[in-house]
Write a protein that binds this DNA or RNA. Sequence first.
DNA 1: CCGGGAAATATAAACGTTTATATTTTTTCC
DNA 2: GGAAAAAATATAAACGTTTATATTTCCCGG
Lengths: 346, 346
Amino acid sequence: MARPTIRTICAETGLSTATVSKALRQSPQVRPETRKRVEEVARRLGYSANLDGVRLRTGKTFQIAAVMAAPEPGSDEWEGVEYAPILSGISRAVEGTGYRVAIHAVRDFAESVDAVQRIVRERLADGVILSQTRVTDERVAILQEAGMPFVTYGTTGAHPAHPFVDADNAGVVRQTVLRLAAAGHRRIALINPPHEQSYARTRSESYRRALSDVGLSHDPALEVAGRLTPEAGRAAVMRLAARPEPPTAYVCANEAVALGALSGFAAAGLVHGRDAIINATDDLNISAYLNPPISTYFLPIHTPAAWLGDHILRAMAGEPPEDLQTLLMPAFIARSDDRLQPGGER
Amino acid sequence: MARPTIRTICAETGLSTATVSKALRQSPQVRPETRKRVEEVARRLGYSANLDGVRLRTGKTFQIAAVMAAPEPGSDEWEGVEYAPILSGISRAVEGTGYRVAIHAVRDFAESVDAVQRIVRERLADGVILSQTRVTDERVAILQEAGMPFVTYGTTGAHPAHPFVDADNAGVVRQTVLRLAAAGHRRIALINPPHEQSYARTRSESYRRALSDVGLSHDPALEVAGRLTPEAGRAAVMRLAARPEPPTAYVCANEAVALGALSGFAAAGLVHGRDAIINATDDLNISAYLNPPISTYFLPIHTPAAWLGDHILRAMAGEPPEDLQTLLMPAFIARSDDRLQPGGER
DNA sequence: CCGGGAAATATAAACGTTTATATTTTTTCC
DNA sequence: GGAAAAAATATAAACGTTTATATTTCCCGG
């Protein structure tokens, strides 16, 4: 009735624990005939290795730590929900490998540094997945020094290079600005995540370069940074729309912000498609259902998630970091607002 | 340099492993003076117990398995995202207890049964959190028989009773129907999750009872069930609105559906607040940002998440199931659509 | 048919804990 | 002061693996 162990199989077959252990792991040291017999008995008994024994002996943990920046409970806003499909995508990708994804929920960056330190010190995982990367990210340094495999969701400025997956933020912002400028927009606002985030920097730089390339000046007042909640998006639009020279287009960092920004339109008396244009990066296809639907760069969230799973497995297998860097370009989806002139009519 | 173990402390203090082990776990068998000394050395060495050793010896896993129904990658729709705050809320609630939340991502119900069986058989966790419950839920039976602590998010019809956390779906639907009926609505549609889900049944029964209580007849055509995606919400509204006698109000099961349903309004030529009313249950405060904002029963997702964490800890501590059953009533938030008559004007 | 080497299997130790049992030390009480 | 009881500590085994080393078995050439 108790769970069968290697010794149960020994008793059944008359072999030693060493042979059984090797047989179960396909060692060439054991005769094929013997291996067959062991496997047969193992199957009959419903044997599966006790991971705790393996862990203790080998030091492997079979865990992939996902350090997940969870929003403050108090906030009650839509923030960070994309973690659900990311986590499930990673789990899915590592399915059948014996690895499991364990959550390390953290409140803020400082806590995530602690979490990483603890993971390294107590060897809580065989690999780590980080997000919310910064340009200089101490967590990356810690992991690199410890020699622990990891993948970041988002880029950093770290040397030597490390495995990462990211959306091509620079590309998205650049194309958006070019497209808006071509349609006649001259005051384009950028709603960005907090500036310490690596992709805030990427977006900001790409934004400025694109403005300059199309001959538009950069007005710092039109570039705002803050948490990526609907609330913040709404507030940003209302604040900017009240300026003497309001923007005619808003480029949002994600769909939560876009939802809030669009909600701000109504409150500020703006009409989407006539007064201004919102353009978001979209993970969950929300943009299609907004009222009105808005143009977006769509990157189904399970795509980066699957890459994260792929990369962490390969990183743990020892592949070099250079082979594990994936930049994904979201697909542009034109909706009701595309090709509209600023101030034009419906 | 290597990680200190109990033996390192033995060497340092001259005590035996047994005494050190007991000292570290505050056993009354060890003299306070000795305990102090051990703790002091442990702190100095930066000792923390190797969980693998503890696990192997005690059989405890320090894992809480969260069986998480992940949407198919192919779907590309907003579905199941509330798992992110749920998982982080649970993690948060068990923080500092030594437990960690491990994800068991499953595609469908059959896979979740397999996952539960595996968790029990291989003792992969000390406790389990289930969601997407059914009225007769074999997973509950498996866990009860195995004597493994668990909490469900959602109710079941299982006997004996088990720990659960749920929103008061019956209450929400009842109040909504009463409110709509009082405002003059006579054809109220219910957009429900797939019927095999336990809360689909709860909502459906409450809906019918409330209709009957206010003297309205039940038209089966107005009760639809399906996946809770924006796509499905949109399709449901468009289909129902095209009927000869369309509903004047739609009661949505969650915010993803509400978003889609509202998007369907535009496509079907309906105007929210004049032609019909949508009323959703809301986890992420999305309703406040819809265009127009809609009335909702709001239950911030971290609330049930915290309860789930609380209940699983107490279940693992051996508290009786009857003390671990929490039904949460979402708070009604009236927005632009409240008190509007069917067919009335703005 | 014997000896040597290769192949297969066995023995035993180790990973870091906890805990039953044994031993030593301290306290208590006459 | 000494025996008995209580308290504190030590010894050793166990949890289920893997693996270095030892031993046995097998095959082959001479």
